[in-house]
Amino acid sequence: MQTAVITHAHGDHLRHGSARYIVARPGASLAQHRLGSGQPVTAVDYGTPFTVGAARVSLHPAGHVLGSAQVRIEHAGEVWVVSGDYKRQPDPTCTPFEPLQCDVFISEATFALPVYRWAPTPQVVEEIVRWWRANRDRGIASALFCYALGKSQRVLAELRAFTDEPVYVHGAVGALTDVYRRAGVEMVPTLTVTSEKKTDYRGALIIAPPSAAGTPWMRRFGEHASGFCSGWMRVRGDRRRRGYDRGFVISDHADWPALLETCLATGARRVLLTHGHSDALARYLTERGVSASALQTAYGADE
């Protein structure tokens, strides 16, 4: 592609192969980190319009991860907004979602079923802390699996309300956490797990990406309890299938009420849906008089 306008730096939304990448300024360092230093990343401020071809384009906060953006495109008197991934819950690591008015709204629908409903994050983080303490009392480590970009830093930031103890992080989490820190996000202190020196992990909290679960990398922690932070953990069968002891329902996506509220608030005459349960949300909105349909995309089904 000639110009790629990037909503956020997750792997299924940011790919190599473009001549130019435009990202929201707070996410520029993340995008650069992910793409590599030689890649041409252009940072623009939220709300400042630029042109791509004949269209007037601007980026607006999506509240998903640091620097995540909705893309507003204005052309021939018509406004389209592509939400990218977004959430409506407060998150200390990124700018909150900004509601926009548009003619056509392309929304994600990852968790578009009424069973998906999120509790306030501090409440869930308090559960994490209690779980960590209980494991410490048993003399074992707590391995908390979080996506390396976004979820990990959000949990590290929310933990500040409960503790200032250092948390161990996997190398992949550590590198991104450094990028967040440099961008001014405040988090509890972190120590990166290395194989150089022998560490006693009993009683420690370790944050690692889900891909590390069940790998030899985990052996160094000895006996440990495992937890997974994800919206999917709302469903018991999902947690049991993935084999985690505990599931903590924290998601960087909009839950059912937030999806409904957001889609309706745009005033869009047409809503297009991607990801997850897009068929269900399309049908529900259609039955409520909003013209909506599912859009096939190349995105994965993961969070």
Binding site: P114, V115, R236, H277, A280, R283, Y284
Partner: peptide, 17 residues
């Protein structure tokens, strides 16, 4: 609506839950 309850139940896989 009934269809949405049905989709929800089949995603959860357990009516009690």
């Amino acid at each position: 609506p009934e269809w949405l309850v049905s989709e929800s139940c089949s995603a959860v896989g357990d009516i009690a839950e």
